[in-house]
Design a protein around this nucleic acid. Sequence first.
RNA 1: GUCCCCAUCGUCUAGCCCGGCCUAGGACACCGGCCUUUCACGCCGGCGACAGGGGUUCGAAUCCCCUUGGGGACGCCA
Length: 507
Amino acid sequence: MKTQSMNSDLNKPKNQVRVRFAPSPTGYLHLGGARTALYNWLWARKSNGVFILRIEDTDVERSTKESVQEILGGLTWLGLSWDEGPYLQTDNLPKHVEAAQKLLVSGHAYRCFCTREELEEQRKAAEARKVAFMYDGRCRDLSPEMVDENLRNGMPYVIRFRVPRETSSVVAFEDAVYGRVEKKGQDIEDFVILRSDGRPLYILSNAVDDALDGITHVIRGADGLANTPKQVLIYKALGIDPPIFAHMPLTLDNRKAKLSKRTHGEVVTIAYYREKGFLPWALCNFMALLGWSSGGEQEFFSRDELTEVFDLSKINRSNSIFNYVPGDPRNWTDPKAIHFNATYIRTMPLEELIPFVKHELQEAGLWRGSFENGEKEWFLRTIDLIRARFLTLKDFSFRGRCYFADDFEFDESAVKKNLGKEPRLREFLPELASRMDRLERFEVHSIEEVFRSYSEEKSVKAGILINAARTAVSGTSVGPGLFEMLEVIGKEKVVNRLNKAVELVAS
RNA sequence: GUCCCCAUCGUCUAGCCCGGCCUAGGACACCGGCCUUUCACGCCGGCGACAGGGGUUCGAAUCCCCUUGGGGACGCCA
């Protein structure tokens, strides 16, 4: 029998964990979606399970190809690789319709001939009376004759699920995060599962797809919590064991509104973090902590560590806030996210950081092939020296420009402070330059020796010379220890820059 | 409006299930200090929370109830 075959189709064995990330391709991959993907990915990896990517593209008007690419690209960048898919929900449309038909045949669903207009009117009336609107079920018990007549007359109809109406009926499920969740049948309306044009609705498609894909754990945002009883009803009516549900708390903005591209702009999109110089794993690590904690005090986790320690039962129940304050240039995103990125940049193994730096320098036109060959040692040393003060990868090409190119900019206040207060620097800088030039071994100690002795000779505080030199060679007032900095920048450049900076000294 | 969920520093959170170890711990941010040629890092210190009210108990952040606050869902959207 057909019904039978469908059942075996839907009731998959559950000997392996199978999870999915099922975004609708109507926009960008954003923080909320990425976090959902991350939790699913973690759970799959932890359980040696399968992570499936499914594109819920049933909303044809709003779904776009670009959006699909955007999502795929975002996940790939984050390193959240999927094992199956991307599947397209629209590919399964016939199965969804088949499921609706099956429910109709088994009496779990019925045809409803009410028109949109009628329902809209009822809805408005209910609203005006300030009472909850719920479909009154007037088509629920139409006689077979009546149904036949309507069909003969070509009246359009939708298929609605027949929710158990007995006062005692309760739909319940055990959420892995929220615990037992119950809802009375009386509080659930007879929801539509198939449109009058024959297309299924999300509530149905989603459940059928999860069954078809053999999903064992549905890990999704808590906004799905209230819909879950309906899906449980569908599963049961279809004779399918529901998956385990794990709803994760939502991430809100600092005004406690749901995050959305529309209201928050690019700061909630994953692409933005990529552009702004985030390390993908730093972002993942940060996102993981929005609504989950290991229970201990560790906050930094490698992929393996996080996979190991991650658990659904440790997911929080209360919503978290993405603490981003618009208009704060220093904290252009949640300060803690920046902290994670900076700490990773500063402390991760150099060889893991280098590929990211390479990419950044290439984009800025600062990369030279020799950084991987003849100049490799120098390059590693330089990166190691400058990364300690950097917050994002962008810093390597902006704040780090003076290490790789001569056309760096001078910070006005730094010039004023370090070159503008001591006129004698017109004499000091060229002299320092020539002493640098005469050094046989241009390295930290010999450089320092020159500065120290010259400072004594001229009875000028070493700090004056040091800070002046810093600004002369880097254009700023901040950076690594000067002597290391000079060594790394190299004799020739240092000599040139010291001489050239005389122009900037106030007379 | 109805139903569901949630409630510890400004933010992320530990502790809650199995009451006493909590004068509530950590992280970010902020403010001091130390280090220092600058800025960071690091270290030391400070600020800062159990939403309110009732119970239960020898004892409650932890258990129960109410209130308040917040969020979510209520569509022929996904």
